[in-house]
Amino acid sequence: MSAVTVDQLNDGGRQSAEDQARAAELKRLERRDGWRRRIPILPALIYTILVTQIPFLFTLFYSLTDWRIDTPDPRQFIWFENYGSLSGDTFFLDSAWVSVQMTVMAVLGSLIVGTGLAILLDRKFFGQGFVRTLLITPFLVMPVVAGLMWKLQMFNSTFGIIGWVMNQLGLEPVEFATRFPLASVVVVLIWQWSPFMMLIVLAGLQGQDQSVLEAARVDGATSWGTFRQITLPQLRPFLELGTLLGAIYLIQVYDHIEVIVGGQPGARNLPFYIAGRSIGGGNRFGLSSAYSIVVVLASIIIANIGLRVLSNLLEDDS
């Protein structure tokens, strides 16, 4: 391969005839390659469709039947009856509300904490790298372990740290996870996801155009003014990305709930509730499928609104 550098290719208008020939040549190659270029995507695409989309069609089908795993197989079509009983199921509505609260609080909480941490870390000080390592570690911890250790060694009223602190302050320790199940789960989620948000915001802060910041300083802008008017707008795509990725994962939270509060009603979100009513022993496959379909539809609608209204992450940039 001969060394053709970027400079040679961008050698100004002097070689415009040559450039045109080059462009034509590329176009010809592209046309010839039309199919060859799509083939590499297919394996990943087919795999994803097989494992995620096909089962979804099954769920759609189950949701129209009265199937329970304990009744023998000839299941009956009952069409939309399952969907009809949905609005009367207060447990379903409760867990939907828990899902909304949990996701919003955890995403916003970790976004705020993470941004704060990123701003603190984005300055030189002694041990900066070490402190950053300390701060990202919660994100690496296995969710099951995170849940167990907060429940037992932090929240527990007799041997937990929070109980000990309350004792020192002369307060009566409470069983935190039992009294405030939702808050307990959200605290652990924020602890785990703030580092993630911090990393993303930090990448945004460090990718800033330094000359603009310098110009603002020369012009006598205050640091707060610089932050609000220059840094924040530049951070926007990073904050959006954090919200998007955080929401994708946090709406599906299951592990923390399973180990911290188990079946307690106060913090039972939709994934937890639906799993329990179907494969977790409830065996109501038809009904649970209808719930799943509603959840999926709601998620798709919310995700689409979120993506299109709030963000231009996926807009065509050509």
């Binding site: 089962p55 979804f56 769920t59 709406i251 939709l270 799943s292 998620s299």
Partner: peptide, 20 residues
């Protein structure tokens, strides 16, 4: 499309996956 499959809550497919 790839990203949107991550929006598909796992509960949406867990039953058929379990049965299959």
């Amino acid at each position: 499309f790839f990203i949107s499959t991550k929006f598909l809550p796992i509960v949406g497919i867990i039953m058929p996956v379990w049965i299959i």
